[in-house]
């Protein structure tokens, strides 16, 4: 065997080790789209709470109003649903391009790692809402989402780890400055996803 063949062989070993243990079909562009959806959602939430006619910082409504609360929950769930569908469909397309499927040992490991922090965070937030601690919901969802990303990052792009840590930091800031939840959500679920998506797209999809 000559030098080139040997190096190629070692490259293949490395490639197989990574391919078999990391789920790389997540589309960077889907991150950008999901970030945009989040910004639209944050905008809708802003107008639901602050109204359209007031100056900056003055609220037409408070979240304590039951009707406003339900509107916010519906907006959040709608954006979540659209984001998940977008993410899955675009991952499917990307996997197909590389002759792979999206339901394999790596995607299962990824979902398993995300599930515990995410489900915990979801239940945690539901309990907060049930007990009327609305001001803590935005920060706790950001924090638990960040934790789930950090846990999942072992099984996908390493950039996800940084994204997770930044989401946690934003969540902590949101906790320190209650009342600005919608801004931290726009930053965490909107801006960060867009930046992350562009970076992944540039590094891995060109």
């Amino acid at each position: 065997m000559n030098q080139q063949e040997l190096l190629k062989e070692i490259g293949q070993i490395r490639n197989m080790m990574e391919k078999s243990s990391k789920f790389m079909s997540i589309s960077g562009l889907s991150g950008v789209l999901i970030g945009c959806f989040a910004l639209v959602g944050a905008g809708a939430a802003y107008y639901t709470v602050y109204g359209t006619k007031s100056d900056f910082g003055y609220r037409d409504y408070y979240v304590l109003d039951q009707q406003v609360l339900w509107k916010l929950i519906v907006i959040a769930l709608l954006i979540l649903l659209v984001s998940i569908v977008t993410g899955v469909l675009m991952a499917k397309a990307k996997a197909k391009k590389h002759g792979q499927t999206i339901w394999n040992p790596t995607s299962k490991a990824l979902l398993k790692a995300m599930a515990i922090p995410l489900i915990t965070g979801g239940l945690f937030s539901l309990i907060l809402i049930a007990r009327g601690n609305y001001s803590l919901v935005a920060s706790s969802l950001l924090i638990f989402y960040g934790l789930s990303l950090a846990a999942a990052s072992v099984f996908t792009f390493r950039e996800v780890r940084v994204l997770g840590v930044l989401e946690i930091l934003l969540g902590l800031l949101a906790l320190a400055f209650p009342g600005y939840g919608v801004w931290f959500w726009a930053a965490g679920f909107g801006l960060l996803h867009i930046i992350y998506g562009l970076i992944v797209h540039k590094r891995y999809e060109k």
Partner: peptide
């Protein structure tokens, strides 16, 4: 060799 690589990871 590739099978073993996968089982290593």
């Amino acid at each position: 060799l590739q099978i073993m690589s996968i089982l290593m990871a």
